[in-house]
């Protein structure tokens, strides 16, 4: 981590190996077909700005924020998506479902997908999601409710 911050190419490469599966999951869950572009932009941004990260322990929260922003940017073309600071989540949930997650995600707006990813994939609290997305907590709650409804409908169809 420190070596990667100093610009050691081998350490940077190792960091890519470590981050790629996780970043790829966040990016493609939000940006869907543009997930690979979003992942590439995220990883570039992470490596470029790595020296500015003072606390290595904050890495995951910081990378997550960049990934969500890049994913939303890739799919909406919006360059001003507000994504604020959030603390690192300690656990990752077991969000297993028999429905086709990808098909259901397609039916949601990118912002709602991001909310869903942060809440269920990244296990942030509703308050943390609201802070990160820069929206009121109520909006996050209603968004999650709709998203769950969509999943339920999809499951019934299947």
């Amino acid at each position: 981590m420190r070596a990667a911050q100093r610009g050691d190419p081998l350490a940077m490469d190792a960091l890519l190996t470590e981050l790629a599966p996780w970043v790829g999951r966040i990016c493609s869950s939000i940006a869907l077909d543009k997930g690979d572009d979003a992942m590439q932009e995220t990883l570039i941004s992470v490596l470029k700005n790595l020296p500015t990260l003072r606390e290595p322990a904050a890495l995951r929260g910081w990378v997550r924020r960049i990934a969500v922003r890049q994913a939303l940017r890739a799919v909406t073309g919006d360059r001003s998506v507000p994504v604020a600071d959030v603390p690192e989540a300690a656990t990752v949930p077991d969000f297993e479902t028999s429905v086709d997650v990808r098909e259901t995600l397609k039916k949601l707006s990118p912002q709602r997908r991001a909310v869903l990813v942060l809440r269920y994939l990244e296990d942030l609290s509703e308050q943390e999601v609201a802070e990160m997305m820069g929206t009121p907590e109520g909006t996050v709650k209603s968004g999650l409710f709709r998203a769950r409804e969509t999943f339920r409908d999809q499951w019934r169809e299947a």
């Binding site: 493609s28 990752v92 949930p93 995600l105």
Partner: peptide
């Protein structure tokens, strides 16, 4: 990270 969710390599 999450089984069933889309992913890219």
């Amino acid at each position: 990270f999450a089984p069933g969710w889309p992913s890219v390599e």
